[in-house]
Write a protein that binds this DNA or RNA. Structure first.
Length: 413
DNA sequence: AATCCACAGGAAGCCCGGGAAC
DNA sequence: GTTCCCGGGCTTCCTGTGGATT
């Protein structure tokens, strides 16, 4: 038979029985260690099934604490039950990190109510916002019932574009006569209501719920349960599961991270032709996950942001750490000249720097050096195994300029 | 205790491209 | 076509500030 490059890989015996189960997007039939949270939310949302309006809620908790999973789980059940008993309950989920302006959230909500009425799509731009809003009201009234609006990562939207949207949405019930709605906000930031107008705060935060991060033991339970379904028997030792749980527990109890770790570790074992997962596979997986996250993030950076990162790396290349904003700006200007880019203001650079910080590519801590002023103290956090400069240059036409720039920091000579 | 550095980061506004409405 | 609106990227102008130094 003719040889094919896939042959060797096909013959490898998979260690998985169902890999999907190990993805965080997979919805298990029950959610371990979240009983009280599920109950609290259900207790409120059951009002929708009785024809009343549930209270608005805010749900807090760090990433990977199961907030989104719990809400999605309940919403599915809610919708199903509603259909069974002939009450129209319509949960709509919006991720405010992806859909991050007032206009787009309203348009998304409006378009999710489209199907049966042959209305037009609300265009992604063009209309005045208040027209989108009244169109949304119209459609909700046409549908009737109770609409449960889930706004995930709501703190992100509020920080970016203020609380106008929430002001309007919490006022929705005053505009609706044939339908009712209630709002569930999900936030990573415990202090996020501080950014809200007091009226919005009181209307939105009728009920709060805080998700605590999972501890190592709870993560272990979650992993064990998923592994029973997703991974073949005798592939995993208890020690491996305990290690994955412990590592993820250090990362503020992130269940998503724990699942990834377990899945990738098993993949690593599979690739090395082993039939059991060992501790070293977990270490490999940890590395892999880190690289997988950061490489595309760097490649996808806008050119100007690449130049900022490039400047930081140039300075670090000279063996310096804890770089000040002014120093970065100095090198950044040289880099712009070298690559023939226009130079942005230092104010703009500050913002770009903060964005790199939130992306987790650098850490930028504002410190005071007393008489020598306040500044950000910047360090890159890219693992050594990644050649960030090469990634950026490969991914960007504007950075293909030839020759070595000779970057010098006057201030530290 | 007062000063003062080197910035942080908010506010407003400009310009542009994309699109709707008239 | 003109005129409206949104949002992103950016500049300008500005006020605020922690703590070493005076």
């Amino acid at each position: 038979m003719e040889e094919n490059i896939f042959d060797g890989f096909l013959q490898v015996n998979s260690l998985f029985s169902d890999k999907e189960v190990l993805r965080h997007t997979h919805m298990p039939a029950k959610l371990p260690h979240r009983d009280t949270e599920v109950e609290a939310i259900m207790f409120n949302l059951v009002e929708a099934l009785k024809g009343n309006v549930p209270s608005n809620m805010i749900i807090y908790g760090p990433s990977g604490a199961g907030k989104t999973a719990v809400i999605n789980f309940i919403c599915r059940q809610l919708e199903k039950k509603g259909r069974q008993i002939g009450r129209y309950v319509n949960p709509v989920y919006v991720n405010c990190r992806k859909i991050d302006t007032q206009y787009r959230v309203l348009a998304h909500l409006g378009n999710s109510l489209l199907e049966e009425y042959e209305q037009e799509d609300i265009p992604f731009t063009g209309w005045p916002t208040d027209r989108v809003f009244s169109e949304l009201v119209k459609r909700m009234n046409l549908k009737g019932g109770v609409h449960v609006l889930v706004l995930d990562e709501i703190d992100h939207l509020v920080k970016k574009s203020g609380d106008d949207l929430l002001y309007n949405l919490t006022n929705l019930n005053a505009e609706l006569d044939e339908a009712r709605c209630s709002i569930i906000g999900i936030s990573n930031d415990l202090k996020f209501t501080g950014y809200l107008d007091s009226r919005v705060r009181s209307r939105l935060g009728q009920e709060d719920l805080v998700f605590k991060p999972y501890n190592a033991q709870q993560l272990q339970d979650i992993l064990t349960e998923r592994a029973e379904v997703g991974i073949l028997a005798n592939v995993l030792s208890e020690a491996v599961i305990r290690l994955c749980s412990a590592l993820a527990a250090q990362e503020h109890g992130d269940a998503r991270r724990a699942l990834n770790l377990l899945r990738v570790s098993t993949e690593k074992a599979e690739q090395s032709g082993d039939v059991v997962v060992l501790e070293r596979h977990v270490r490999m997986a940890q590395n892999q996950i880190e690289c997988d996250q950061i490489t595309p993030a760097i490649a996808a950076l806008p050119s100007q942001q690449k130049l900022v990162l490039f400047s930081i790396l140039q300075i670090e290349h000279q063996g310096l750490r804890n770089i000040a904003t002014g120093e970065i700006y100095e090198i950044y200007k040289q880099a712009c000249k070298h690559f023939g880019n226009n130079i942005l203001t230092q104010r703009r650079l500050t913002t770009l720097l903060s964005e790199l910080d939130t992306l987790g590519i650098v850490t930028a801590k504002t410190i005071s050096r007393g008489r020598y002023g306040r500044t950000k103290q910047v360090n890159s956090c890219i693992p050594n195994s990644i050649d960030a400069v090469k990634i950026m240059i490969d991914a960007d036409e504007l950075m293909q300029a030839v020759g070595d720039g000779n970057y010098r920091l006057q201030s530290r000579l």
